[in-house]
Design a protein around this nucleic acid. Structure first.
Lengths: 223, 223
DNA sequence: ATGGATCCACCTATGGATCCCT
DNA sequence: AGGGATCCATAGGTGGATCCAT
């Protein structure tokens, strides 16, 4: 396990991410003193953590951006042969008890999305995992219009949650931002309050950005 | 690791604990398919967990009594050659943010102390760890007088904590119940609020029963 | 195509307590 | 003697995401 110091400026981070563009996961893993898992299935977050290490992110520290000092969140994003995202993107846990009364301005998810460095990684199943390559990163901040849509989605979701109606929310809801299960399995349970204010258990959820939304982020240039 | 079913009644638990009285830790460990650590220093809670296993406690489940179905908390207690406790007894974590406004009636520590099965274990340093024997258990419920003293101690502690003055509490405070650090080390930190209501970090604390108090519990008969 | 289900790593909090210096 | 410091195990939550049946 080789440790890299945190980048001190945005430019330094952009330089580092440019330096790894085009590398295969095997090559990057080798540089980092790691070996590539045989199957991605049993190592779903591995590539994301490898890149964090390679770029000098503050490893797995919580409640902070990946690059805390410069306020940048890193997200790897699996892309197909056309460079289009294959998957929705997990952002953070949905609050079920605490902080359900805060505003969009102060919402944790808004902070996480305020400045994201998107790093595409080849995900075509026909490419062996170790040979998949890292693409060119895109630094993104939500436009005013995007922020407005996200805010509206978030408001609608949180309205239902504060009314104790989380079980009525499906992944169909939300234009850009959806809510889906985020758990070890479908039997996992977390506390929340129902319509009558009683403490009850429910499946833990996460906020996800829809694939179509991240597809537009990757194709348009914002900065 | 051999698993024993939970005792269904108080009598069944008392029978089981009577059955292991007089055994050495080595003998009990052998029956449980475990080996005794060389030094207690690096396995401080080992004997407690061994006994839990041997008696069929719900292993390390939180927020519940050790014997949840019958409402009994198990505590091993190290005793010297005279059967007197050598150490204070840890009860539970001191709340620093949540639940600092609840009453003694509803306090978590009161629930934990409502019915305790004390199990003495020889702790004289001259006896090799593996040869130390298990003593005769005592089932204890606080008397009205004991509950009153504990309540007073708890009220005084919690009053200071709710005023943000936890750093003024030392182990000198409290007749039966004291507050001391409970952490991996003295650098560990937890959130609390200071006198002005600001969120600040402090050393995590635990509630402990003074040695002199548990000494009286072990020598007097209550039930 | 995608909504619901799942997988690993890591960190922290709690539960089990005793150590050890002054 | 005892107040402050420390030690291990384990559960649970969060962060990293992708899988896969329909």
């Amino acid at each position: 396990m080789i440790c890299i110091s945190a980048p001190r400026t945005q430019d330094e981070l952009l330089q580092r991410v440019a330096d790894i563009a085009g590398l295969s996961l095997a090559t990057l893993a080798n540089r980092c003193g790691q070996s590539v898992p045989e199957q991605q299935r049993n190592a779903k977050g591995w590539a994301g953590q490898l890149v964090e290490q390679a770029l000098g992110a503050t490893a797995s520290s919580r409640a902070e951006p990946d690059f805390q000092a410069i306020g940048i969140e890193l997200k790897t994003i699996p892309v197909n042969a056309n460079g289009q995202p294959c998957e929705s993107t997990y952002v953070c846990t949905v609050p079920l008890v605490d902080q359900i009364e805060t505003s969009w301005q102060d919402a944790w998810i808004r902070k996480k999305l305020s400045c994201v460095l998107w790093l595409p990684i080849e995900a075509d199943k026909s490419i062996p995992f170790a040979r998949r390559r890292i693409g060119n990163a895109i630094l993104w901040r939500p436009t005013v219009e995007q922020d407005a849509i996200l805010k509206q989605d978030w408001n609608e979701h949180m309205e239902l949650i504060s009314l104790g109606r989380i079980n009525e929310i499906s992944a169909h809801h939300g234009t850009y931002l959806q809510i889906r299960p985020k758990a070890a399995n479908s039997h996992a349970l977390r506390n929340t309050t129902d319509e009558d204010g009683n403490l009850v258990k429910t499946l833990p959820r996460g906020f996800y950005l829809r694939t179509q939304f991240t597809a537009r982020i990757l194709t348009e240039r914002y900065l």
